[in-house]
Design a protein around this nucleic acid. Structure first.
Lengths: 186, 186
DNA sequence: GTCTATATTCCGATAGAC
DNA sequence: GTCTATCGGAATATAGAC
């Protein structure tokens, strides 16, 4: 895989996560790389291809993280913390997550990108649901609702908190993430 | 206030909430109204003016709702339910809320629109924080964290849930909103 | 295989017609 | 006061040069 291609993917993801899908152009990427905008079309014929590839890269990254946690025998708390830390880092880097960035533009995305984004969200929710269910069964997590609802509520909070934290200044992200943990303590 | 102007505001808000700020054009609105796109510029010289007016309209609508609830002597539960119902309705109408739609595009908005959006979010969070604080003091709500954190967590969940519900089909919004209530019950 | 010159379409906006 | 004809520029994308 060419280095230019990788840089395009990285720059594209950054642009989506800071400015949104419909607000960035091939020009933004090509200028940064010192080439003409049309050169991007060699690697990604259309913006749809680029968007889809970026989502797929993120799904892959998620799968790698999950595999990594399993092979290192992370317990439920360690896994949850690893996941939440993704958002703490995003917050520090002043970026939204891909789901929060692409979500509002869902209807304007091409079908293949829609399918991948949907797949990404369902994959994350399934993983989180399983984690919560397992943790509840092992009594390391405690919560009244069913695991699927709880997973949705935690994921929603994380996604939207990044959006709000980019606007409202006084937001204490540390205590926000802490409240997620506190809420699950037995 | 002219009827055309009001229709533009309504169509603009709908477009933002279904397709996002950077995905809609004056053309989308003018076609719907059967006039030329430039006619919109008479009412709103630039897209910035339109966006700002839409946010201001929403702030005003929120203030009216709050006033209405006070004059009808709504208790804490009734007020919370009225607020949550805004999102239940949005979900039914397959629209995101303004905050969730404009949030990811925040950096691409003009400064006046940014200021208004920020004002809107802070206004909502302040209202919700006060409501939770009052309800906690009167023992009709019960939750461990401080009211500001709880307000942020509830608001985040509502905002993001609309985004996810537009993508993941199997989402049960009724039980989602119910879990917000259950979580606050003493 | 990698990138540039160029076409085409659409956007937001101005100047001016009615 | 209300809307149209039209401009300048930017966006995505194709065809072709190296």
């Amino acid at each position: 895989m060419s280095v230019t291609r990788e840089k395009i993917l990285e720059l594209g993801e950054n642009l989506i996560r800071t400015r949104g899908y419909n607000a960035f152009s091939y020009q933004d990427i090509s200028t940064e790389l010192g080439i003409k905008n049309a050169a991007i079309h060699y690697y990604f014929p259309s913006k749809e291809n680029l968007g889809t590839s970026i989502v797929r890269t993120n799904i892959q990254r998620f799968e790698e993280m999950v595999d990594n946690m399993h092979s290192r025998h992370f317990d439920e708390w360690q896994q949850l913390e690893s996941f939440v830390k993704i958002y703490v880092r995003s917050h520090r880097e002043q970026k939204k997550c891909l789901v929060g960035s692409l979500g509002p533009d869902y209807r304007t995305l091409n079908e293949t990108t829609q399918v991948e984004l949907k797949r990404m969200i369902e994959r994350i929710l399934k993983w989180l649901t399983d984690l919560l269910e397992q943790g509840k069964a092992r009594k390391v997590f405690a919560f009244p609702d069913d695991p699927a609802s709880k997973a949705l509520s935690i994921f929603s909070s994380l996604v939207a908190s990044l959006q709000l934290s980019g606007i409202v200044d006084k937001m204490d992200y540390k205590s926000f993430s802490q409240s997620i943990y506190d809420d699950l303590k037995p």
